[in-house]
Design a protein around this nucleic acid. Sequence first.
DNA 1: AGGAATGAAAC
DNA 2: GTTTCATTCCT
Length: 515
Amino acid sequence: MVWEVKTNQMPNAVQKLLFVVDKRTSGMTESLELLKCNENLPSSPGYASCDEHMELDDLPELQAVQTDSTPTALFQLGTDISHQEYSRPSWNQHTSNNNSENAYSCENGVNWLTELANIATSPQSPLMQCSFYNRSSPVHIIATSKSLHSYARPPPGSSKSDPSFSKYHLDETPVRHERASSESESGIFCMSSLSDDDDLGWCHSWPSTVWHCFLKGTRLCFHKGHNKEWQTVEHFVRAEGCENEDDLMGTYKDYGSDGLKLISHEESISFGESVLKLTFDPGTVEDGLLTVECRLDHPFYVKNKGWSSFYPSLTVVQHGIPCCEMHIGDMCLPPGHPDAINFDDSGVFDTFKSYDFTPMDSSAVYVLSSMARQRRASLSCGGSGSQDFERSECSKNCVADGSSQLSSSSLCSKAGKSHSSGTASAMSATSPNKCKRPMNAFMLFAKKYRVEYTQMYPGKDNRAISVILGDRWKKMKNEERRMYTLEAKALAEEQKRLNPDCWKRKRTNSGSQQH
DNA sequence: AGGAATGAAAC
DNA sequence: GTTTCATTCCT
Protein backbone atom coordinates (compact mmCIF):
# COMPACT_ATOMS: atom_id res chain seq x y z
CA MET A 1 0.00 0.00 0.00
CA VAL A 2 1.09 3.46 -0.64
CA TRP A 3 0.50 6.46 1.45
CA GLU A 4 0.67 9.57 -0.48
CA VAL A 5 0.93 12.69 1.52
CA LYS A 6 0.44 16.01 -0.06
CA THR A 7 0.67 19.30 1.62
CA ASN A 8 -1.23 22.26 0.50
CA GLN A 9 1.62 24.54 1.12
CA MET A 10 3.57 22.71 -1.43
CA PRO A 11 1.38 21.35 -4.11
CA ASN A 12 4.36 19.84 -5.77
CA ALA A 13 5.51 18.11 -2.73
CA VAL A 14 4.39 14.58 -2.44
CA GLN A 15 5.37 12.28 0.32
CA LYS A 16 4.87 8.70 -0.49
CA LEU A 17 4.73 6.05 2.08
CA LEU A 18 4.79 2.60 0.82
CA PHE A 19 3.99 -0.30 3.03
CA VAL A 20 4.93 -3.60 1.63
CA VAL A 21 3.89 -6.55 3.60
CA ASP A 22 5.57 -9.68 2.66
CA LYS A 23 4.00 -12.41 4.65
CA ARG A 24 6.15 -15.35 4.12
CA THR A 25 4.53 -18.68 4.14
CA SER A 26 7.19 -20.53 5.93
CA GLY A 27 5.13 -21.58 8.83
CA MET A 28 6.35 -18.87 11.03
CA THR A 29 4.60 -15.61 10.91
CA GLU A 30 7.63 -14.02 9.58
CA SER A 31 6.98 -10.80 7.97
CA LEU A 32 8.98 -8.29 6.19
CA GLU A 33 7.53 -4.93 6.13
CA LEU A 34 8.70 -2.05 4.22
CA LEU A 35 7.84 1.36 5.24
CA LYS A 36 8.86 3.55 2.46
CA CYS A 37 9.12 7.19 3.02
CA ASN A 38 9.90 9.45 0.23
CA GLU A 39 9.61 13.09 0.25
CA ASN A 40 9.84 14.81 -3.01
CA LEU A 41 10.27 18.08 -1.40
CA PRO A 42 12.39 20.92 -2.48
CA SER A 43 14.26 20.68 0.72
CA SER A 44 15.02 17.08 0.32
CA PRO A 45 18.37 15.94 -0.99
CA GLY A 46 16.97 15.38 -4.37
CA TYR A 47 16.17 18.99 -4.74
CA ALA A 48 18.96 21.41 -4.74
CA SER A 49 17.19 24.35 -6.15
CA CYS A 50 15.64 25.80 -3.10
CA ASP A 51 18.55 27.68 -1.77
CA GLU A 52 17.02 31.04 -2.05
CA HIS A 53 13.99 29.89 -0.19
CA MET A 54 16.05 28.38 2.47
CA GLU A 55 17.84 31.60 2.91
CA LEU A 56 14.55 33.24 3.48
CA ASP A 57 13.91 30.65 6.04
CA ASP A 58 16.92 31.58 7.95
CA LEU A 59 14.83 33.71 10.11
CA PRO A 60 12.30 32.33 12.44
CA GLU A 61 8.75 33.16 11.96
CA LEU A 62 7.22 32.43 15.23
CA GLN A 63 3.81 33.51 15.94
CA ALA A 64 1.49 33.44 18.79
CA VAL A 65 0.31 29.99 19.44
CA GLN A 66 -3.16 29.50 18.28
CA THR A 67 -5.32 26.71 19.30
CA ASP A 68 -6.77 25.76 16.08
CA SER A 69 -9.94 23.86 16.36
CA THR A 70 -9.49 22.26 13.03
CA PRO A 71 -7.17 19.39 12.61
CA THR A 72 -4.06 20.78 11.15
CA ALA A 73 -2.59 17.83 9.51
CA LEU A 74 -5.32 15.42 9.11
CA PHE A 75 -5.12 12.48 6.86
CA GLN A 76 -7.96 10.37 5.86
CA LEU A 77 -7.22 6.82 5.31
CA GLY A 78 -9.17 5.01 2.75
CA THR A 79 -9.12 1.38 2.15
CA ASP A 80 -6.09 1.79 0.00
CA ILE A 81 -4.43 3.69 2.78
CA SER A 82 -4.09 6.66 0.60
CA HIS A 83 -4.65 9.90 2.25
CA GLN A 84 -4.26 13.51 1.61
CA GLU A 85 -3.95 16.47 3.77
CA TYR A 86 -6.85 18.72 3.22
CA SER A 87 -6.88 21.22 5.90
CA ARG A 88 -4.48 23.99 5.83
CA PRO A 89 -3.69 25.63 9.05
CA SER A 90 -4.13 29.30 9.00
CA TRP A 91 -0.82 29.90 10.56
CA ASN A 92 0.74 28.19 7.72
CA GLN A 93 -0.86 30.22 5.08
CA HIS A 94 0.09 33.14 7.04
CA THR A 95 3.68 32.42 7.46
CA SER A 96 4.26 30.98 4.10
CA ASN A 97 3.11 34.10 2.50
CA ASN A 98 4.50 36.57 4.80
CA ASN A 99 7.80 35.14 5.51
CA SER A 100 9.85 37.09 7.91
CA GLU A 101 7.67 40.11 8.01
CA ASN A 102 5.74 39.19 11.05
CA ALA A 103 8.43 37.69 13.05
CA TYR A 104 10.52 40.75 12.79
CA SER A 105 7.97 43.41 12.75
CA CYS A 106 8.78 43.81 16.35
CA GLU A 107 11.64 46.22 16.55
CA ASN A 108 12.36 45.25 20.02
CA GLY A 109 14.30 42.07 19.90
CA VAL A 110 14.13 41.55 23.58
CA ASN A 111 10.40 41.72 23.61
CA TRP A 112 10.28 39.42 20.73
CA LEU A 113 12.47 36.96 22.48
CA THR A 114 10.50 37.20 25.61
CA GLU A 115 7.35 36.64 23.76
CA LEU A 116 8.95 33.80 21.98
CA ALA A 117 10.01 32.16 25.16
CA ASN A 118 6.63 32.64 26.67
CA ILE A 119 5.00 31.09 23.70
CA ALA A 120 7.30 28.19 23.58
CA THR A 121 7.06 27.45 27.23
CA SER A 122 3.39 27.98 27.56
CA PRO A 123 1.21 25.04 28.42
CA GLN A 124 -0.17 25.19 24.96
CA SER A 125 3.16 24.89 23.35
CA PRO A 126 3.81 21.71 21.45
CA LEU A 127 6.99 21.50 23.39
CA MET A 128 4.91 20.87 26.40
CA GLN A 129 2.48 18.53 24.91
CA CYS A 130 4.04 15.49 23.59
CA SER A 131 3.37 12.29 25.29
CA PHE A 132 6.53 10.46 25.74
CA TYR A 133 6.98 6.81 25.77
CA ASN A 134 7.94 7.19 29.32
CA ARG A 135 6.97 10.49 30.61
CA SER A 136 8.82 10.14 33.80
CA SER A 137 12.06 9.75 32.03
CA PRO A 138 13.94 12.59 30.60
CA VAL A 139 15.07 12.44 27.08
CA HIS A 140 18.66 11.58 26.96
CA ILE A 141 21.27 12.62 24.58
CA ILE A 142 24.21 10.41 24.86
CA ALA A 143 26.64 11.79 22.42
CA THR A 144 29.36 13.97 23.74
CA SER A 145 30.88 16.77 21.87
CA LYS A 146 33.58 14.45 20.82
CA SER A 147 31.31 11.95 19.37
CA LEU A 148 29.62 14.33 17.09
CA HIS A 149 30.40 14.74 13.52
CA SER A 150 32.49 17.76 12.83
CA TYR A 151 29.68 19.47 11.11
CA ALA A 152 27.15 18.12 13.45
CA ARG A 153 27.26 20.75 16.04
CA PRO A 154 24.16 21.78 17.79
CA PRO A 155 23.14 25.36 18.09
CA PRO A 156 24.47 27.52 20.81
CA GLY A 157 23.21 27.21 24.27
CA SER A 158 21.11 24.19 23.85
CA SER A 159 20.44 22.09 26.77
CA LYS A 160 18.83 18.85 27.34
CA SER A 161 15.89 20.50 28.79
CA ASP A 162 13.13 18.15 29.08
CA PRO A 163 9.76 19.63 28.98
CA SER A 164 7.29 17.47 30.70
CA PHE A 165 4.79 16.79 28.10
CA SER A 166 1.26 16.13 28.86
CA LYS A 167 -0.72 13.42 27.35
CA TYR A 168 -1.41 13.88 23.76
CA HIS A 169 -4.48 12.29 22.41
CA LEU A 170 -5.25 11.51 18.88
CA ASP A 171 -8.78 12.48 19.37
CA GLU A 172 -7.94 15.88 20.47
CA THR A 173 -6.87 18.60 18.24
CA PRO A 174 -3.97 20.05 20.02
CA VAL A 175 -1.78 20.27 17.04
CA ARG A 176 -0.37 23.63 17.13
CA HIS A 177 2.17 25.48 15.21
CA GLU A 178 4.49 28.08 16.33
CA ARG A 179 6.23 28.44 13.15
CA ALA A 180 5.99 27.23 9.69
CA SER A 181 7.99 27.44 6.64
CA SER A 182 6.59 26.90 3.27
CA GLU A 183 9.69 25.16 2.18
CA SER A 184 10.57 23.21 5.17
CA GLU A 185 7.77 20.82 5.60
CA SER A 186 10.24 18.11 5.38
CA GLY A 187 8.82 15.68 7.78
CA ILE A 188 10.84 12.71 8.64
CA PHE A 189 9.10 9.47 8.60
CA CYS A 190 10.31 6.30 9.96
CA MET A 191 9.29 3.18 11.65
CA SER A 192 7.95 3.32 15.06
CA SER A 193 7.62 1.24 18.03
CA LEU A 194 4.23 1.25 19.49
CA SER A 195 3.00 0.91 22.90
CA ASP A 196 -0.48 -0.11 23.72
CA ASP A 197 -0.67 2.48 26.36
CA ASP A 198 0.35 5.43 24.40
CA ASP A 199 -1.04 7.21 21.50
CA LEU A 200 2.41 8.00 20.50
CA GLY A 201 5.05 5.56 19.70
CA TRP A 202 8.59 6.63 19.84
CA CYS A 203 9.24 10.13 20.63
CA HIS A 204 12.64 11.58 20.94
CA SER A 205 13.81 15.01 21.25
CA TRP A 206 16.93 16.88 20.71
CA PRO A 207 17.03 19.25 23.59
CA SER A 208 14.29 21.68 23.03
CA THR A 209 15.04 21.55 19.42
CA VAL A 210 13.70 18.69 17.53
CA TRP A 211 11.40 15.95 18.25
CA HIS A 212 9.77 13.38 16.25
CA CYS A 213 6.86 11.35 17.20
CA PHE A 214 5.23 8.33 15.87
CA LEU A 215 1.57 8.05 16.07
CA LYS A 216 -0.11 4.92 17.00
CA GLY A 217 -1.50 3.17 14.04
CA THR A 218 0.09 5.37 11.49
CA ARG A 219 3.68 4.91 12.38
CA LEU A 220 4.11 8.25 10.86
CA CYS A 221 6.39 10.50 12.59
CA PHE A 222 7.06 14.03 12.03
CA HIS A 223 10.05 15.76 13.14
CA LYS A 224 10.99 19.23 12.47
CA GLY A 225 13.97 21.27 13.06
CA HIS A 226 15.08 22.43 9.77
CA ASN A 227 18.68 23.23 9.64
CA LYS A 228 18.43 26.90 9.17
CA GLU A 229 15.75 27.60 11.62
CA TRP A 230 16.13 25.28 14.52
CA GLN A 231 12.50 25.47 14.87
CA THR A 232 10.35 23.33 16.94
CA VAL A 233 8.30 20.51 15.77
CA GLU A 234 4.76 21.04 15.02
CA HIS A 235 3.26 18.83 12.52
CA PHE A 236 1.50 15.73 13.38
CA VAL A 237 -0.13 13.33 11.13
CA ARG A 238 -3.28 11.83 12.31
CA ALA A 239 -4.86 8.76 11.07
CA GLU A 240 -8.55 8.55 11.14
CA GLY A 241 -10.76 5.76 10.17
CA CYS A 242 -7.89 3.42 9.93
CA GLU A 243 -9.89 0.28 10.02
CA ASN A 244 -7.03 -2.04 9.95
CA GLU A 245 -5.06 -0.25 12.53
CA ASP A 246 -4.65 -3.40 14.48
CA ASP A 247 -3.26 -5.09 11.46
CA LEU A 248 -0.90 -2.31 10.90
CA MET A 249 0.15 -2.36 14.44
CA GLY A 250 0.40 -6.05 14.77
CA THR A 251 3.94 -6.60 13.79
CA TYR A 252 5.11 -3.46 15.43
CA LYS A 253 3.27 -3.90 18.60
CA ASP A 254 6.10 -5.06 20.69
CA TYR A 255 8.84 -3.32 18.91
CA GLY A 256 10.62 -0.81 20.90
CA SER A 257 10.67 -2.38 24.26
CA ASP A 258 14.17 -3.54 23.60
CA GLY A 259 14.93 -1.48 20.61
CA LEU A 260 15.60 -2.38 17.05
CA LYS A 261 18.94 -3.63 15.98
CA LEU A 262 20.20 -2.47 12.66
CA ILE A 263 21.37 -5.44 10.69
CA SER A 264 21.78 -4.16 7.20
CA HIS A 265 21.65 -1.07 5.15
CA GLU A 266 21.92 -0.15 1.56
CA GLU A 267 21.44 2.88 -0.52
CA SER A 268 19.26 2.97 -3.51
CA ILE A 269 17.57 5.35 -5.81
CA SER A 270 13.90 5.71 -5.31
CA PHE A 271 11.65 8.31 -6.80
CA GLY A 272 14.74 9.87 -8.23
CA GLU A 273 16.20 10.30 -4.84
CA SER A 274 18.79 8.44 -2.93
CA VAL A 275 17.29 6.62 -0.05
CA LEU A 276 18.47 4.33 2.64
CA LYS A 277 16.99 0.96 3.01
CA LEU A 278 17.49 -0.28 6.50
CA THR A 279 16.67 -3.59 8.01
CA PHE A 280 16.14 -3.95 11.69
CA ASP A 281 15.87 -6.92 13.92
CA PRO A 282 13.39 -6.37 16.69
CA GLY A 283 14.76 -9.35 18.50
CA THR A 284 11.58 -11.30 18.58
CA VAL A 285 11.32 -14.24 16.30
CA GLU A 286 7.65 -13.84 15.63
CA ASP A 287 8.04 -10.39 14.36
CA GLY A 288 10.62 -11.10 11.78
CA LEU A 289 12.56 -8.26 10.36
CA LEU A 290 11.57 -4.74 9.85
CA THR A 291 12.72 -2.96 6.79
CA VAL A 292 12.48 0.70 6.38
CA GLU A 293 13.28 3.15 3.69
CA CYS A 294 14.16 6.56 4.77
CA ARG A 295 16.08 9.54 3.73
CA LEU A 296 19.82 9.52 3.90
CA ASP A 297 19.79 12.04 6.63
CA HIS A 298 17.27 10.35 8.80
CA PRO A 299 18.28 10.40 12.45
CA PHE A 300 17.88 7.46 14.74
CA TYR A 301 18.35 7.28 18.42
CA VAL A 302 20.98 4.70 19.11
CA LYS A 303 22.00 2.98 22.25
CA ASN A 304 25.22 4.32 23.68
CA LYS A 305 25.42 6.86 20.97
CA GLY A 306 22.38 9.02 20.98
CA TRP A 307 21.29 10.54 17.75
CA SER A 308 22.91 8.89 14.84
CA SER A 309 22.57 8.82 11.14
CA PHE A 310 24.39 7.56 8.13
CA TYR A 311 25.10 11.04 7.00
CA PRO A 312 25.60 13.09 10.12
CA SER A 313 26.59 16.15 8.23
CA LEU A 314 23.50 15.93 6.12
CA THR A 315 21.40 15.40 9.17
CA VAL A 316 22.66 18.40 10.95
CA VAL A 317 22.40 20.53 7.90
CA GLN A 318 18.99 19.36 6.97
CA HIS A 319 17.43 18.90 10.35
CA GLY A 320 19.65 20.39 12.91
CA ILE A 321 20.39 17.23 14.79
CA PRO A 322 23.99 16.60 15.63
CA CYS A 323 24.67 12.95 15.10
CA CYS A 324 27.14 10.21 15.41
CA GLU A 325 27.62 7.92 12.51
CA MET A 326 25.33 5.01 12.42
CA HIS A 327 26.63 1.52 11.93
CA ILE A 328 25.48 -2.00 11.58
CA GLY A 329 24.65 -3.40 14.95
CA ASP A 330 23.39 -0.16 16.33
CA MET A 331 20.45 -0.54 18.58
CA CYS A 332 17.76 2.02 18.07
CA LEU A 333 16.09 2.76 21.34
CA PRO A 334 12.83 4.17 22.35
CA PRO A 335 13.05 7.03 24.76
CA GLY A 336 12.95 6.18 28.36
CA HIS A 337 14.69 2.95 27.68
CA PRO A 338 16.95 1.93 30.54
CA ASP A 339 19.90 1.88 28.22
CA ALA A 340 19.26 5.40 27.19
CA ILE A 341 20.48 6.85 30.39
CA ASN A 342 23.62 7.64 32.25
CA PHE A 343 25.35 9.74 29.81
CA ASP A 344 27.46 12.71 30.29
CA ASP A 345 26.51 15.57 28.15
CA SER A 346 28.97 17.95 29.59
CA GLY A 347 30.79 19.50 26.80
CA VAL A 348 28.18 18.72 24.27
CA PHE A 349 26.58 22.03 24.45
CA ASP A 350 29.77 23.89 24.73
CA THR A 351 30.47 23.02 21.19
CA PHE A 352 27.53 25.07 20.24
CA LYS A 353 29.68 28.07 20.50
CA SER A 354 30.86 27.34 17.07
CA TYR A 355 27.51 28.41 15.87
CA ASP A 356 27.41 32.06 16.26
CA PHE A 357 23.73 32.35 16.05
CA THR A 358 22.27 35.46 17.38
CA PRO A 359 18.92 35.29 19.01
CA MET A 360 17.49 36.84 15.95
CA ASP A 361 18.90 34.12 13.85
CA SER A 362 17.24 31.44 15.69
CA SER A 363 13.97 30.22 16.89
CA ALA A 364 12.21 29.64 20.09
CA VAL A 365 14.52 26.79 20.49
CA TYR A 366 17.34 29.12 20.95
CA VAL A 367 15.55 31.03 23.59
CA LEU A 368 14.50 27.96 25.41
CA SER A 369 17.91 26.54 25.16
CA SER A 370 19.47 29.69 26.39
CA MET A 371 17.17 29.76 29.32
CA ALA A 372 17.92 26.20 30.13
CA ARG A 373 21.55 26.85 29.70
CA GLN A 374 21.50 29.73 32.06
CA ARG A 375 19.61 27.65 34.47
CA ARG A 376 22.17 24.98 34.22
CA ALA A 377 24.99 27.38 34.57
CA SER A 378 23.55 28.87 37.67
CA LEU A 379 22.96 25.48 39.16
CA SER A 380 26.26 23.96 38.37
CA CYS A 381 28.84 26.32 39.59
CA GLY A 382 31.19 23.88 38.15
CA GLY A 383 34.05 25.42 37.04
CA SER A 384 35.34 27.46 34.33
CA GLY A 385 32.64 27.67 31.88
CA SER A 386 35.12 28.39 29.23
CA GLN A 387 36.68 25.07 28.91
CA ASP A 388 38.06 24.04 25.65
CA PHE A 389 35.11 22.63 24.00
CA GLU A 390 37.12 20.55 21.64
CA ARG A 391 38.94 18.90 24.41
CA SER A 392 37.89 16.13 26.70
CA GLU A 393 38.26 12.63 25.64
CA CYS A 394 36.37 11.79 22.63
CA SER A 395 33.85 9.19 22.05
CA LYS A 396 33.47 7.99 25.52
CA ASN A 397 30.15 6.76 24.51
CA CYS A 398 30.16 7.00 20.85
CA VAL A 399 32.60 4.43 19.72
CA ALA A 400 31.83 1.73 22.09
CA ASP A 401 31.51 -0.83 19.41
CA GLY A 402 34.52 -2.01 17.61
CA SER A 403 33.30 -1.17 14.23
CA SER A 404 36.14 1.20 13.94
CA GLN A 405 34.46 3.91 12.16
CA LEU A 406 36.23 6.97 11.40
CA SER A 407 34.58 10.20 11.50
CA SER A 408 33.44 10.65 14.97
CA SER A 409 36.35 9.36 16.85
CA SER A 410 39.04 10.36 14.53
CA LEU A 411 37.58 13.71 14.15
CA CYS A 412 37.62 14.17 17.81
CA SER A 413 41.13 13.08 18.26
CA LYS A 414 42.12 15.24 15.45
CA ALA A 415 40.34 18.15 16.83
CA GLY A 416 42.08 17.71 20.07
CA LYS A 417 45.36 17.37 18.36
CA SER A 418 44.97 20.37 16.24
CA HIS A 419 44.02 22.31 19.24
CA SER A 420 47.06 21.39 21.18
CA SER A 421 49.34 22.14 18.35
CA GLY A 422 47.23 24.86 17.05
CA THR A 423 49.65 27.68 17.55
CA ALA A 424 50.57 27.49 13.96
CA SER A 425 47.10 28.42 13.11
CA ALA A 426 46.50 32.08 12.85
CA MET A 427 43.22 31.75 14.59
CA SER A 428 44.11 29.34 17.31
CA ALA A 429 44.61 31.71 20.15
CA THR A 430 41.93 34.24 19.59
CA SER A 431 39.25 32.21 17.94
CA PRO A 432 39.03 28.99 19.81
CA ASN A 433 36.94 27.21 17.30
CA LYS A 434 39.14 26.85 14.34
CA CYS A 435 36.88 26.22 11.52
CA LYS A 436 37.65 23.64 8.98
CA ARG A 437 36.79 23.65 5.43
CA PRO A 438 33.88 21.50 4.69
CA MET A 439 34.63 18.39 2.80
CA ASN A 440 34.02 18.39 -0.85
CA ALA A 441 32.11 15.66 -2.54
CA PHE A 442 35.09 13.48 -3.12
CA MET A 443 36.30 13.88 0.40
CA LEU A 444 32.95 12.78 1.68
CA PHE A 445 33.05 9.82 -0.58
CA ALA A 446 36.60 8.97 0.35
CA LYS A 447 35.87 9.24 3.98
CA LYS A 448 32.97 6.92 3.69
CA TYR A 449 34.72 4.28 1.70
CA ARG A 450 38.31 4.48 2.77
CA VAL A 451 37.89 1.95 5.51
CA GLU A 452 36.05 -0.36 3.23
CA TYR A 453 38.71 -0.13 0.60
CA THR A 454 41.42 -0.53 3.16
CA GLN A 455 39.87 -3.75 4.25
CA MET A 456 39.33 -4.77 0.70
CA TYR A 457 42.97 -4.25 -0.14
CA PRO A 458 44.87 -5.29 2.96
CA GLY A 459 48.41 -4.14 2.98
CA LYS A 460 47.80 -1.29 0.65
CA ASP A 461 49.26 1.96 1.67
CA ASN A 462 46.80 4.66 2.48
CA ARG A 463 48.06 6.64 -0.46
CA ALA A 464 47.37 3.73 -2.70
CA ILE A 465 43.90 3.63 -1.30
CA SER A 466 43.56 7.25 -2.19
CA VAL A 467 44.49 6.42 -5.73
CA ILE A 468 41.90 3.70 -5.85
CA LEU A 469 39.32 5.99 -4.36
CA GLY A 470 40.12 8.61 -6.91
CA ASP A 471 39.87 6.10 -9.67
CA ARG A 472 36.57 4.85 -8.37
CA TRP A 473 35.30 8.38 -8.06
CA LYS A 474 36.08 9.17 -11.62
CA LYS A 475 34.25 6.13 -12.79
CA MET A 476 31.16 6.91 -10.83
CA LYS A 477 28.14 8.23 -12.59
CA ASN A 478 26.86 11.64 -11.79
CA GLU A 479 23.86 10.06 -10.25
CA GLU A 480 26.04 8.15 -7.87
CA ARG A 481 28.04 11.22 -7.05
CA ARG A 482 24.99 13.27 -6.58
CA MET A 483 24.39 12.60 -2.94
CA TYR A 484 27.95 13.48 -2.11
CA THR A 485 27.79 16.58 -4.20
CA LEU A 486 24.62 17.63 -2.52
CA GLU A 487 25.97 16.97 0.87
CA ALA A 488 29.13 18.86 0.09
CA LYS A 489 27.16 21.72 -1.23
CA ALA A 490 24.98 21.82 1.82
CA LEU A 491 27.98 21.71 4.06
CA ALA A 492 29.70 24.46 2.16
CA GLU A 493 26.70 26.68 2.30
CA GLU A 494 26.24 26.11 5.94
CA GLN A 495 29.86 26.73 6.60
CA LYS A 496 29.83 29.88 4.58
CA ARG A 497 26.89 31.08 6.46
CA LEU A 498 28.33 30.31 9.83
CA ASN A 499 31.89 31.11 9.09
CA PRO A 500 32.50 33.01 5.89
CA ASP A 501 36.21 33.21 6.53
CA CYS A 502 36.63 29.53 6.63
CA TRP A 503 38.21 29.35 3.23
CA LYS A 504 40.71 32.04 3.90
CA ARG A 505 44.10 30.74 3.06
CA LYS A 506 46.79 30.88 5.58
CA ARG A 507 49.62 33.20 4.84
CA THR A 508 52.68 31.29 3.97
CA ASN A 509 55.24 32.46 6.46
CA SER A 510 58.03 31.12 4.35
CA GLY A 511 59.24 33.61 1.79
CA SER A 512 57.00 36.30 0.58
CA GLN A 513 54.98 34.00 -1.49
CA GLN A 514 52.22 34.75 -3.82
CA HIS A 515 52.69 36.04 -7.23
C1' DA B 1 55.34 16.06 8.44
C1' DG B 2 54.68 14.07 3.87
C1' DG B 3 51.86 12.01 0.67
C1' DA B 4 47.75 10.24 -2.29
C1' DA B 5 43.21 11.36 -4.18
C1' DT B 6 39.47 15.57 -5.87
C1' DG B 7 37.41 19.87 -5.60
C1' DA B 8 36.39 24.51 -4.02
C1' DA B 9 37.82 28.71 -2.96
C1' DA B 10 41.20 32.08 -2.18
C1' DC B 11 45.10 34.09 -4.07
C1' DG C 1 46.78 29.45 -13.19
C1' DT C 2 48.42 28.30 -8.59
C1' DT C 3 47.97 27.28 -3.82
C1' DT C 4 45.69 25.72 0.14
C1' DC C 5 43.13 22.51 2.66
C1' DA C 6 39.43 19.61 3.65
C1' DT C 7 40.04 13.29 5.24
C1' DT C 8 42.70 9.30 6.47
C1' DC C 9 46.65 6.79 8.19
C1' DC C 10 50.91 4.74 7.25
C1' DT C 11 55.78 5.79 6.80
